[in-house]
Write a protein that binds this DNA or RNA. Structure first.
Length: 782
DNA sequence: CAGTGAGCGAGCTTCCGCTTGACTT
């Protein structure tokens, strides 16, 4: 019989702890929550004081019965779930479901997985904190009420299968509002003035910028004109020491941000890779909001720094979490063993590990020291000055290991180089002055990672939900991650050189974006709807204010059902009212005008499958009445901005554009964008062409291109096995075998020369690696 | 990642937060 049963949340953690505790302890994992509200029902009994109806999900039944029998057999059960609200609730559910008894059940907590921490926890057990559990129930019930009362309203008023929630709806709001700011943004121009001087030695160049920008061309002309006869001399040299400190160790959110900036990983990619590192025992837990390092980690970091860089580079630092609502059940994300400089694994895993290791080490290193030199050049007939700033690193400190990245150019600190040695009052000769027209920048669109950062700042969402939330708002098609073409802008450059002023216009592309989050029509309509009826829930401070109540519950100062009741009494009547409003028109519907052909009204709205134009009304009761006509909006069109003319044009599709080889060519828009159908085959119309304006010649060219590509698609077939083929895909050659695809190693230069045996070797080797065998088949529709 | 290609009157959708697995005979 087992003496002790310890239950933790994660199986990887269970494995580690079992080693520390010895053979008198069996350690099992609950795999997170073991009980929850029903998935398909409201499951809250409003009439009976918001009593939640918990069930054990089907995929947890087997686990729960195993836990139950192990618990029954054990002399002592130790509930060791995380030391936060959710963890406390997990322990409580375990206690209830497993039928544990108070006399042989103990609750223990530790927030670092070290032998000392665990042994200490075993020595200092406590009871389940029911106040904390109730705070979790309040959180759970509130989220269910908000989600399950708001979503059905959207199904009725906007589109089926939509969703709303405390977290996702605010995430969408951030993106919608940012896009509006961008649309309303008016950039302002000003001239940046840069002068190149030659020092008295006759060769060295000093580059300096005018201390202020000039408003317009007239001002620039006047300024340059007066510079013709001016003399320039150095009137001030200042040197100032500057210090820079390292960033704290990673939390989930900062790891996601840095992995996106430095390695280009998406938020979910980062989490998957980190999960593998965690399961291999290489890093600590990857879902955390804490920047705290264990004493063990602090000690080994110190050793590593002293050994590799020397004492001068070491500085003991303790970080404190600043983010709102942090619960700090875990440590910061760090290598399990700092001394592990190299790991085995995929290239991605290695890169992420290296990032985590460097960040951890740097966080315990000395400040970098810089010397900032400012040289100011005065103009004898003006009070403005030219200024040159240079920076020299006098001691690199943590910079030797790690440098934090920035999201966009605005945030990036200017890279100041080294300045040439100069003397005070030295007279300089002017080479040229270049005035470049610069524009203020619009606010940046969110990336996945910058959205996570914003949500964290607002205290909305948790480390375990950042990645799923971003997935959800994209699945619902509230936002899309995509690219935006920039627009060409003309700016002028005015140069003074050799006493002559010259002006040229130059062109630049601005506002182009890659992989940024942008709202869709659906997202915008849903957001506007929720904002007008439920501004309190969409308020950026809603989560923060309910968290305050949950804190009061956790402290025992408030009964959780009263907190919920307070909210429900305000919230539910609005839900009822909103649902009761009979609307003839869908939310977001907009009439564009009248169809000149039929005289029927033309309007745009969110249809069952997304944004559409509709001509004429439906007459559900009259079967004889003419049916309305529909047309889907094209990519880039929006129900907010589309005009009547543009909308009517969409009805020209499908459009016969001519004949080729005796068969009609028809242009239309399908599920995956514009295409041409010809002789039963489909050819996509590229982004820079329009199905409404494409000519027969262009279409024939596309068809021929497609045929050529299809021919080249089959690189090689094998007689040994017809299911094995080498194909040419969008991303180069690949092997396909039994409906699965396999990458050809980069070392192979002539894929078409691969033999049957070589191909099968690639296939079987890939199949052995667990990651490659899995093929995600994402089903959108039921 | 590796090729798809409507429809707008018929049937169930949805929340947030913990955690990973992968039918059973």
């Amino acid at each position: 019989m087992q003496k002790n049963l310890v239950i933790v949340e994660s199986p990887a953690k269970a494995k580690t702890i079992e080693k520390f505790l010895g053979k008198d302890f069996k350690v099992m994992s609950s795999y997170g929550h073991i009980r929850d509200l029903k998935t398909k029902e409201f499951s809250i009994d409003i009439e009976h004081n918001y009593a939640p109806q918990y069930v054990i999900p089907a995929d947890k039944k087997k686990l729960v019965s195993e836990l139950k029998s192990e618990a029954k057999a054990a002399e002592q059960v130790w509930l060791a779930s995380d030391e936060d609200r959710e963890g406390e609730a997990i322990s409580w559910h375990l206690y209830e479901v497993l039928g544990l008894k108070p006399e042989n059940t103990k609750r223990i907590v530790f927030h670092e997985i070290t032998k000392n921490a665990i042994l200490h926890a075993i020595e200092t057990p406590r009871d389940i904190n029911i106040d904390l559990v109730n705070a979790q129930q309040a959180r759970r019930v509130l989220d269910r009420i908000v989600g399950f009362e708001l979503s059905p309203i959207l199904w009725r008023k906007v589109k089926p299968a939509l969703s709303a929630g405390r977290v996702q709806s605010v995430a969408v709001r951030l993106i919608v509002e940012r896009e509006r700011e961008i649309n309303e943004f008016v950039s302002e121009a000003a001239y940046r003035i840069i002068a190149n001087f030659t020092l008295p030695d006759g060769t060295t160049i000093l580059k300096a910028e005018l201390s202020k920008r000039l408003k317009d061309k007239k001002e620039v002309m006047e300024f340059l004109e007066s510079c013709k006869s001016a003399s320039f001399s150095i009137d001030e040299i200042t040197k100032k020491p500057v210090k820079k400190s390292p960033a704290p160790p990673f939390t989930t959110s900062t790891l996601q941000q840095e992995a996106a900036r430095k390695l280009g990983y998406s938020v979910s990619q980062t989490m998957m890779i980190a999960q593998r590192l965690y399961e291999s025992g290489l890093i600590t837990y990857m879902r955390t909001d804490s920047v705290n390092l264990s004493d063990l980690a602090l000690g080994t970091s110190k050793e590593a720094i002293l050994e590799t860089y020397g004492e001068k580079y070491y500085k003991f630092r303790q970080y404190h979490t600043k983010s709102k609502g942090a619960q700090e059940a875990h440590e910061a994300i760090r290598p399990t063993y700092i001394s592990n400089t190299e790991i085995s694994g995929s290239a991605q895993e290695k890169k992420l590990y290296e990032l985590i290791r460097k960040r951890t080490i740097a966080s315990q290193m000395a400040d970098a020291e810089l010397e900032r030199t400012t040289i100011s050049v005065c103009i004898n007939n003006k009070k403005e000055k030219f200024v040159a700033v240079g920076e020299v690193i006098t001691f690199d400190g943590f910079l030797q290991v790690y440098r934090e990245s920035y999201d966009d150019e605005n945030e990036k600190e200017q890279e100041n180089g080294l300045l040439p040695p100069v003397e005070l009052h030295e007279v300089l000769s002017l080479n040229d002055i270049v005035a470049t027209e610069r524009f203020t920048q619009r606010p940046p669109r969110y990336t996945e990672a910058s959205l996570v950062r914003r949500l964290e700042e607002l205290g909305i969402g948790r480390p375990s939900t950042y990645a799923p939330t971003i997935q959800t708002i994209q699945n619902r098609e509230y936002v899309i991650k995509g690219d935006k073409d920039g627009v060409e802008r003309v700016y002028s450059v005015i140069t003074l050189a050799k006493d002559k002023i010259k002006e040229v216009d130059k062109k630049e592309i601005v506002g182009a974006d890659r992989n940024k989050l942008m709202p869709t029509d659906i997202g915008t309509v849903v957001n506007d709807f929720l904002m007008s009826y439920f501004p309190d829930v969409l308020d950026y401070n809603f989560t923060a204010s309910v968290e305050k109540e949950f804190d009061a519950v956790a402290e025992g100062d408030m009964v959780w059902t009263e907190a919920i009741d307070k909210f429900y009494k305000l919230f539910h009547p609005i839900v009822e009212e909103t649902a009761a409003v009979k609307t003839e028109h869908k939310v977001g519907e907009r009439q564009l005008g009248v169809d000149p052909k039929s005289g029927n009204p033309v309007f745009v709205k969110i249809g069952r499958y997304g944004p559409v134009v509709q001509i004429g009304q439906a007459h559900p009761d009259d079967k004889e009445a003419p049916k309305p006509q529909f047309a889907t909006l094209m990519k880039g069109q929006s129900i907010e901005t589309i005009t009547l003319e543009e909308a009517l044009k969409l009805f020209d599709l499908p459009r016969t554009i001519g004949e080729y080889e005796g068969k009609d060519m028809v242009a239309a828009i399908g599920r995956f964008g514009p295409f041409i159908r010809h002789d039963g085959k489909f050819v996509s119309i590229p982004k820079d062409m329009n199905p409404l304006s494409i000519t027969a010649e262009e279409a024939i060219e596309l068809i021929d291109e497609k045929r050529k590509k299809d021919e080249q698609r089959f690189l090689k077939k094998f007689e040994e096995d017809p299911e094995l083929e080498i194909l040419n895909g969008r991303y180069g050659p690949y092997i396909t075998y039994k409906k699965a695809n396999y990458r050809i190693p980069k070392t192979v230069t002539n894929p078409e020369k691969l033999t049957y045996e070589e191909c099968m070797k690639i296939v079987t080797e890939a199949a052995e690696k667990p990651a490659a065998t899995k093929k995600r088949t994402t089903k959108k529709k039921a």
